[in-house]
Design a protein around this nucleic acid. Structure first.
Lengths: 249, 249
DNA sequence: CTGCCCCTATTGTATATACAACTTAATCAA
DNA sequence: TTGATTAAGTTGTATATACAATAGGGGCAG
C-alpha cells in the first residue's frame, strides 16, 4: 500500500481498524457522524475494498460502528462503565449454541401502576403501563422466566406483538436502542410460581438479572430475568488488549 | 453452489456457519476435535474458500472454534456466554461505599496438582501450584469467600505476601495485567464450610464468580469468588451513545 | 403539487487467485 | 543416530472483480 498515516501493526486490516479507532478517539468523527465510505477509505489508504470491508465489518461486529446499506457507516461508540453486562438476548444465546429456542407467553397486558411501579418509571400513580411474562425454553427445558414492564410512550404497540416469533428484547431493541442501561445481578430462590414455571426444586438457587433501560425521553423498560442456577450462567471471555483498543487506548 | 445439506438462511456464509453449528451440536465433531479444513469444506459445500473462511473466522471470533495456523480448526470445548465483567476488586468496592474492609487469610500454601487442577492450567499432573483461601469482610460482615489457584511461573513469590495488607487480586494485577480474562457467574448454594465462613443458612443462594486469567506465557490464575446473595450483587450502569446516525443526527 | 421511476452512492455477498506464515512429517546428509 | 532440509497441508492476509440489495435524491409525467 502507499505511504499514509498507518504504521504500528503489520496486518493491513488491523492498521485500518487502528486508523478508524484513532479517528474516533481524536474526535475527527464524533459519535453519530458518518465515516468515509469504503470507496473513499480505499483511495485514501491505498487498500483494496475487501480489506477495508473486513476492517469496517469487524469494528461493526464489535459494536463500534453502525452500517446501513445504501447509506453509509456511522460512529456508534458507547462508553462502558465499571463492571458491565451487555444486553444479551436469550434466543441469540441459544441459537449460538446451536439449540432450539421456544417461548411461552403467559401474560401480556396493560395495567394501572401503583405508587412504587410508577416511581420506577418516574411517572404519576395510575399511569398505564404494559406488562409481560414469558418463559423461554432451550430444547424444551425452561431456562429463563422474564417479567417485563414497558412504558407505552416508548413502545405503544407492545401489546400487539407476537413474542413467540420475535423475543420482546429484540422487538424493543428494534424500536430504539436505549441510551442508558442498568444491570443488577442477584442470587435468589424465586417464589413458588416461578419455581413451577422453571421446573426446579424449592431451594434451587437462581441467577436474577434486573435490567432497566432509558432513552432520552425517559425510562423505557424494566425487566427481571430469572435463570435456574444449574442450567444457566452468565459469562464472558475477552482479550484485554482488544478491550483496551475498544476503549480507544 | 451445488446441492447439499444446507438450506435455511439465504446467505451462503450463514448457511455454512449453521452447517458447522449443526455438526458440533450433533456430536459429529466433538469438543476438541478437528473440523474439516477450508479446502475440504470448499469441496463438500461447493463454496469458495473466501466464503468458507468468513464463516469459520466468524465462528472463531465468537469463541466456538479455535484455529491454529498450519494445523487446522478445532471445536472449542468451553462455550463462552454473553456479557462482560471487568476484574473487580472487593476491597475497592467496599472502600468506594465508604465502609471498612478487612480480610482473613485461612490458607496460603503450595501443593501438587491432581489431574483436574493441572488440566485447568494446561499442565501435567503433579505440578506445583499455589493455593489461597481468604474471607473478606465489609464492616465485620463476611461478603466474599475467595479461593484462588496461582501458577508459580506467573507469581513465584505468592506465598511470601501478606494478603491482609494488600488483596491478592491487587497483588496479582501488579505483577502483570492478564492478556485474557474469563468470568462465569453462577447461582449456587455453597458447601457447609463456606456457609459457616460466610455466616449464612443452609439454603441461602450465593453468587459465585469463577474467574480465570491468562498471560502470553499461559494460564496464570483461577479464582472462585462466592458472595452471599442477600448481601452482595453485581451491577453496572452505563451510557450508550446515540446511534440515530442518519443525517444530522 | 404529487406520485412514480430511475439513477447514483453505499454497503452486502460471492468468487478466483496469489502469496505469506506456520506445523508436521518425511527425507536426506553428516 | 542426529540434525538439517524439504515437502505437503493448513490457515492468514490481500487483491481484483462482479453482482445484489438498499436508501435517497432528482427528474418526469400527470
Amino acid at each position: 500500500m502507499s505511504d499514509n498515516g498507518l504504521e504500528k501493526p503489520q496486518k493491513l486490516y488491523e492498521q485500518i481498524k487502528q486508523y478508524l479507532l484513532d479517528g474516533i478517539a481524536s474526535g475527527q468523527w464524533p459519535d453519530g457522524s458518518r465515516i468515509p465510505s469504503e470507496h473513499e477509505l480505499m483511495e485514501v489508504l491505498g487498500a483494496s475494498r475487501m480489506t477495508v470491508n473486513r476492517a469496517v465489518r469487524e469494528l461493526s461486529a464489535d459494536g463500534l460502528l453502525n452500517r446501513v446499506q445504501g447509506l453509509g457507516t456511522f460512529v456508534r461508540a458507547r462508553v462502558p462503565r465499571s463492571a458491565l453486562l451487555e444486553i444479551y438476548d436469550i434466543s441469540e444465546d441459544i441459537q449460538r449454541r446451536g439449540n432450539v429456542h421456544k417461548s411461552q407467553v403467559l401474560l401480556l397486558e396493560a395495567f394501572r401502576a401503583d405508587e412504587a411501579q410508577a416511581a420506577a418509571f418516574m411517572l404519576r400513580r395510575g399511569v398505564r403501563l404494559f406488562h409481560s411474562e414469558i418463559v423461554h425454553f432451550e430444547n424444551d427445558v425452561p431456562v429463563q422466566f422474564e417479567v417485563r414492564f414497558v412504558s407505552p410512550r416508548f413502545a405503544p404497540e407492545y401489546l400487539e406483538q407476537d413474542f413467540t416469533q420475535q423475543t420482546s428484547n429484540r422487538y424493543l431493541q428494534g424500536i430504539a436502542p436505549p441510551s442508558e442501561v442498568e444491570h443488577i445481578v442477584h442470587a435468589v430462590t424465586p417464589d413458588e410460581r416461578a419455581q413451577a414455571l422453571l421446573e426446579i426444586g424449592p431451594h434451587e438457587p437462581c441467577l436474577q438479572v434486573e435490567r432497566r433501560t432509558w432513552t432520552e425521553a425517559g425510562p423505557a423498560t424494566r425487566s427481571v430475568l430469572t435463570h435456574p442456577g444449574r442450567r444457566y450462567s452468565l459469562g464472558s471471555r475477552y482479550a484485554v488488549a482488544d478491550w483496551n483498543a475498544k476503549k480507544g487506548g
